[in-house]
Structures are given as structure tokens and as C-alpha cells.
């Protein structure tokens, strides 16, 4: 009984907040941070490392910033199609980092395009820490 009430309250609170699957941006940081810590207990998400990762080229011709620009508050542009991309920072685009399915989908796709592999929880935690640090 006792564990069901917090669960129900949390679910209701999330529903009241908007879409059924909505989450707060900070929850993504906790999620990736916890995943990274399970491999390395000393891991601390670092915004500066996230920024460097975001603007660096890794395994392909593209960096994250090729489409998103180096400024998370700026509108980006798809490097191949020219389609406009809304800013990544929640401070500039409030629906960023609120939908778990979208966050997972775009990390999966875009890390594949930029790194030819999935991003690690450490890399995701650093990038999210950086995006959340933008005011």
C-alpha cells in the first residue's frame, strides 16, 4: 500500500504537467548520471566537457554543432536538408528534454550520424548538464 500512493501521485503530477509522458529536463540528467555512475562511481556530469563533445568531430564529417550550431539557444539548420531546427536548450525551447521517447530517439539517431555508434551515458550526462547550464 505505502509504495503505491507515491507512485500514483507522481504519475498524476506528471499528467497535470502536460503530455502523459512528460518529464522535467533535470530528470534526464539524473537518469544518464545514474547510468554512468553504475560503471564509474566517481563520475560527475561536467557542462564544459559536454560543450567540447558537442562541438568536436568524432567519427564522421559532422559534429553535433554542424546542425545545431555551437549555441544551444540558437536555431539550427539540418546540414543536409536545410530544415530549421529549434534550439536545444530548455531555456530557449521549453519542450526540450521533456519527452523520454524523443530524447532517446534523437540521441540514438544523431549519435549514429556523428559518432557511428550510440553515445555513452557519460557523454549524454555531460551534454545534458551543459544544456541545463544555459540560462
Amino acid at each position: 500500500m505505502t509504495h503505491l500512493i507515491p507512485l500514483a501521485l507522481a504519475t498524476a503530477a506528471l499528467s497535470i504537467g502536460g503530455a502523459v509522458s512528460a518529464a522535467a529536463p533535470r530528470e534526464f540528467l539524473s537518469r544518464f548520471e545514474n547510468a554512468a555512475r553504475s560503471a564509474d562511481a566517481s563520475f560527475v556530469p561536467t557542462a564544459a566537457r559536454g560543450a567540447a563533445f558537442f562541438t568536436a568531430k568524432h567519427a564522421t564529417a559532422w559534429s553535433c554543432s554542424s546542425c545545431h550550431t555551437p549555441d544551444p539557444k540558437a536555431q539550427g539548420k539540418h546540414a543536409a536538408t536545410g530544415k530549421l531546427i529549434q534550439p536545444l536548450a530548455p531555456a530557449a525551447q521549453p519542450d526540450r528534454l521533456t519527452d523520454p521517447a524523443k530524447v532517446d530517439k534523437w540521441f540514438r539517431r544523431n549519435c549514429s550520424d556523428v559518432l557511428n555508434r550510440e553515445c555513452t551515458p557519460r557523454e549524454k550526462a555531460d551534454v545534458v548538464a551543459w544544456l541545463l547550464s544555459i540560462r
Partner: peptide, 22 residues
């Protein structure tokens, strides 16, 4: 225990109704 399930459902329903997004 028997009361907990209906309460969960009620809260879920209430949350969904408030959000207006079934």
C-alpha cells in the same frame, strides 16, 4: 491494499482529465 488500486486509477484519471490530453 484493496483500496489502493482504485485510488491509483482515480488519480490517473484525474491527472489525465486536468491535462485535457487523454
Amino acid at each position: 491494499m484493496t483500496r489502493s488500486i482504485p485510488m491509483t486509477m482515480l488519480l490517473l484519471w484525474a491527472g489525465s482529465a486536468v491535462a485535457g490530453q487523454p
